[in-house]
Amino acid sequence: MSTDGILVLTRSAPYGSSAARDALDVALTCSVFEQPVTLLFLDDGVFQLLKEQSPSAIAQKNLNAVQQSLPLYDIERLCVGRSSLEQRGLSGAELILPVELIDDADLPALLAQHRHVLSI
């Protein structure tokens, strides 16, 4: 199997820690250096992609603004764990960008498609 690019794996909800922002910064930097990059959201990480966030009440910057710029950086492969989404009562329609839903059984193959996995 050919392996190419970097997979950035993020599993934390937004705003409770800097993980969401830090993962986005890594993905954007990969793109600037012309490395193919995939973002994978698992567990509470799926909350990062919810539409209509309003974190200004807690003096945080809205992640949606940066997320909407991802296609402009050629970061088009956003993968979301299907079971993570379903366990939290969410659906793809509630997310800010179109995503690829990945079944648990297909996660190892997704990881194996990439040269490196950066877990943030």
């Binding site: 970097i6 794996l9 599993r11 934390s12 820690s17 993980a19 910064d25 890594v26 930097t29 990969c30 600037v32 250096f33 490395q35 040269r115 490196h116 996995v117 950066l118 877990s119 943030i120």
Partner: peptide
């Protein structure tokens, strides 16, 4: 230095291992 050094490390290395993520 910048995050570019992380990406460059990914390009140059056979293996990149992360410690202390998920918090």
């Amino acid at each position: 230095s910048g995050l570019g050094q992380l990406v460059e490390a990914c390009i140059q290395s056979d293996r990149v291992v992360t410690f202390g993520g998920r918090s």
